[in-house]
């Protein structure tokens, strides 16, 4: 195994304040969206079920986009990788929303 003589010289690069601030901003967005979902869950009456559900689904997709795009860095990856992941995901999420929507049995306006 590596002995002390072989320990590499490591230069630590100082933190990029702007980059770290951006990560915390994304975290703040995620928390604000979650709190907003709670406000909807408690203030909008259940009679407005259509509205409630579509707001929840929409906000979920926004949250997912922030997590995958910024935290998982996909937004900044090469185009071909970006689309290879995104296209199958769009189809499966579409199917997911469609089936859960059927399951809720929404009243018709």
């Amino acid at each position: 195994m590596a002995h002390h003589a072989h320990e590499p010289q490591v230069t630590v690069i100082p933190p990029d304040k702007a980059k770290i601030k951006k990560l915390w901003t994304v975290a703040l967005y995620l928390l604000v969206i979650t709190i907003f979902e709670f406000i909807i869950a408690f203030t909008v009456p259940h009679e407005y079920k259509q509205l409630r559900v579509w707001v929840f689904v929409g906000l979920t997709i926004v949250k997912a986009a922030y997590i995958v795009g910024e935290f998982m860095h996909l937004r900044h990856e090469v185009k071909v990788l970006f689309w290879s992941i995104l296209i199958p995901t769009i189809f499966i999420v579409w199917m997911l929303v469609a089936f859960v929507y059927e399951g809720i049995k929404m009243p018709v306006f």
Partner: peptide, 25 residues
């Protein structure tokens, strides 16, 4: 991506089974 399909499979089945039961109205 494949793991996302597995989880989606579970949640899609949830929607499917839920749709075959009475909803609380």
């Amino acid at each position: 991506l494949s793991d996302a399909f597995t989880f989606s499979g579970l949640l899609i089945t949830y929607g499917l089974v839920r749709s075959s039961h009475q909803a609380y109205d």
